[in-house]
Design a protein around this nucleic acid. Sequence first.
DNA 1: TCGTAAAGTTAGCATTGCTAACATATGTTT
DNA 2: AAACATATGTTAGCAATGCTAACTTTACGA
Lengths: 216, 216
Amino acid sequence: MSSQPSGVESKKEYHHGDLRRQLLEAVRELIEENGPEGFSVAQACRRAGVSTAAPYKHFKDRHEIMRGVLLLAMERMRQVMQDAADAWPAGDPSRIVALGQAYVDFARNEPGMFQMMFGHSGRHDQSPELEAAGERTGAVVKIVVAEHFNRPVDDPVVQLRAYAAWSFVHGHSFLCLDNKIPFEMPAETEHALLVLVGKAILPDPSAHAGQDHGGG
Amino acid sequence: MSSQPSGVESKKEYHHGDLRRQLLEAVRELIEENGPEGFSVAQACRRAGVSTAAPYKHFKDRHEIMRGVLLLAMERMRQVMQDAADAWPAGDPSRIVALGQAYVDFARNEPGMFQMMFGHSGRHDQSPELEAAGERTGAVVKIVVAEHFNRPVDDPVVQLRAYAAWSFVHGHSFLCLDNKIPFEMPAETEHALLVLVGKAILPDPSAHAGQDHGGG
DNA sequence: TCGTAAAGTTAGCATTGCTAACATATGTTT
DNA sequence: AAACATATGTTAGCAATGCTAACTTTACGA
């Protein structure tokens, strides 16, 4: 067993032992502190206590670092959404609202991450792994919507309605972070908004059974 | 009249004559070509044919350049939305769909600008003028929604519903640019989506007169 | 035990944002 | 018209950054 320090930095050794993970964490912190633009590899190095050349033993370039950071963030997002869904029984309309709330909450709790994940269309910060992680997150939404409509996940109705709901919470999240909401919105109003739009886009299928939920 | 060149670059004179505008245009081009991250003041200088120090006679720093670029972009956005609204008579439900389509189309036509305007929450790239321009754009939406519901623009119902609709097209625009749509979406499907969500969030007030459109 | 590879280091390059000091054109005042 | 003030260019140079090259130290397996 090597004497690799875990968690906090211990006595200075030549080999850091946990650099990769600490770099990812340092970058995450910097982005949350200074915004998506406000970070540099050099800053992260200082924070991790290594030279500015050290990261390139672990990552090809700064974009690969970003990909690592984003992958972890996407996994956190999937987790909080899964937890929100699990807090309600399948089929309960509150489940969808909770899911949307979890999405918005993640954006508010990790605004830097959220903006890096979705706001840049960063060509360089893309990867198959990240894409797969994104699809796992999207799957959470689709499954809940499918259960809501009691249809298979690949049903066109489910696809379209799930996407419409996602678009809404996605846009709302961005507008929140940008302080673009043109009126007061306390938590209750936001909840009401989610309920309102949830009902509108994902109407209870048992209520008006004959209705066409597909649209076009 | 001085011999200042207009439009294309003419014979090289010591004084450029149109640098401020050409820099803004060069930056806009670079962002559309290389993405929101992929531009530098130096590149814009090369494109405008001046030294890298020249911009600082016109702008305080790179953020002031960005603010200028974003201000012009926001004005273009307001214009295309106003035009879309003007293409339909007041009260026509198609007007709202056209407005949403114009929003999404702007994002697709100027993806770099759209992402710079909304995707960064750029602390440094903010200004009172830009904020005012943003509110003018938002006003177009609010007015159309107010006419739709036949209520004053500051009516809470109008505020909330207009915001909900904006959130949706905003999110959809981002997801489009990020290639995050999990299924095929030709233009007709997108139109159908806009109609579907438009009806859901902004139901025709004449149809179900007694309905509560506020959602409290 | 020893050699190899992993994972650090320092030195250095090109690019960038920005400033300082200088140069040139513009145009107003007499 | 001459002279000056101002606007708007220039070159030179600084510090920070991303990244590479060459070297050094440590860990681990044959």
